[in-house]
Design a protein around this nucleic acid. Structure first.
Lengths: 198, 198
DNA sequence: GAGTTTCGCTACGGGAGCGTATCGCAAGAT
DNA sequence: ATCTTGCGATACGCTCCCGTAGCGAAACTC
């Protein structure tokens, strides 16, 4: 994997690499779409020559892909004590994420550019969406098995209801009027009225 | 309102105007974002000189605003026979809309460019979002008054759950795998399990 | 110290789109 | 017939960005 023969010249600057990725994320976080993102702007923001960028990435998508990959927020640990508790933790992470600029920006990319940058989207889906989706699914399946939830609950639909409701809020929330702290709990409690076995 | 003094020269071609708006909608529908949309491309697509566009609209946002305004889909008529029926009609319109290209494109604008084009977004919100939002709210309030729904139902949250769940589906639906016909009914029935008075 | 590679910087030719101006023709009012 | 305005077309100078090349300095290995 690593160097088998000694590297001969000046090594590539790790600092420059991080500056480039950081600059790209900053720009995207400020609302620049992937298509609008220019290498020149990234280089200027990073305090780096364009050459340094082209030497590492052959196209914009690869750069953005690597940049987004560094953001993969850790999956929240779900204690598994109760479905309600796990769901609240899960949704509250979404709520908190919606307040940070960078997460908003990757949401924008994920939401609005799937068909425009399919490879980028696919990569993002596998590294970020799919694991979370599985975690949520597991919580609901577990609840169904334990009897906390209805036997005939449509898990796919339930996932869409939970995520969709929080997503709806995060999309329409303004910066001035952030989402209330107990939003996750209120969503989960309302949803569980229907999900629960009775 | 109209001409008080006679119009002196050659009148503006209504045909050209429609061609311009149509071209703009086509391009946006094909995935061009508002920022990427170029006047030159619109003019070329419409078979029109750039001058003809600049004579009517001073900036891109006004043009796109007028274009989107022509799309305002009619609010679905809600019969008012039952909450369940009204909600299904309401959500099913969302589902059907998600299959037409132009509706998808205005959704993209509404979802991803609110901060980038605030005036455009505001206009869209008032002409499209707000009326629908009011209609949905009215259905739920009516249901609460009639006893079909819980007295203590959080109407705002219920609206987010219904719309958010359908929106979630429309966002992740692929063209190959369209949303099932009974999706609206399934969402409503699942939600009503919690919303209903018991 | 010699050799090699990367560094930030500047400059290049080229393409795309901007918004404006000007053309000769078209379409109406007077 | 004359006047006025809109029409499509073309061209202009401008800005932004592309991707590449060359510069001298810097950072390593040998």
């Amino acid at each position: 994997m690593t160097r088998q023969a000694a590297v001969r010249g000046r090594p590539r600057s790790e600092k420059a690499e991080k500056a480039i990725i950081g600059a790209a994320l900053d720009l995207i976080g400020e609302g620049t779409s992937v298509s609008e993102l220019s290498i020149e702007a990234v280089a200027a923001r990073a305090g780096v020559g364009k050459t340094t960028i082209y030497r590492r990435w052959t196209n914009k998508e690869d750069l953005v892909g690597d940049a987004l990959a560094t953001l993969k927020a850790p999956l929240p640990a779900l204690a598994g004590r109760s479905v309600r508790e796990d769901l609240i933790v899960y949704l509250d992470v979404m709520r908190q994420d919606s307040r940070t600029l960078r997460t908003r920006c990757i949401m924008n990319i994920a939401m609005s550019e799937p068909e425009r940058h399919p490879r980028l989207y696919e990569r993002f889906r596998q590294s970020v969406i799919e694991p979370r989706r599985c975690a949520l699914q597991a919580v609901l399946e577990r609840g169904r098995a334990s009897g906390e939830l209805r036997e005939d609950l449509d898990v796919e639909l339930a996932m869409a209801m939970l995520s969709g409701t929080m997503m709806w809020h995060t999309k329409w929330a303004s910066d001035l009027d952030p989402l209330p702290d107990d939003l996750a709990a209120r969503i989960v409690d309302e949803a569980l009225l229907g999900f629960r076995a009775r």
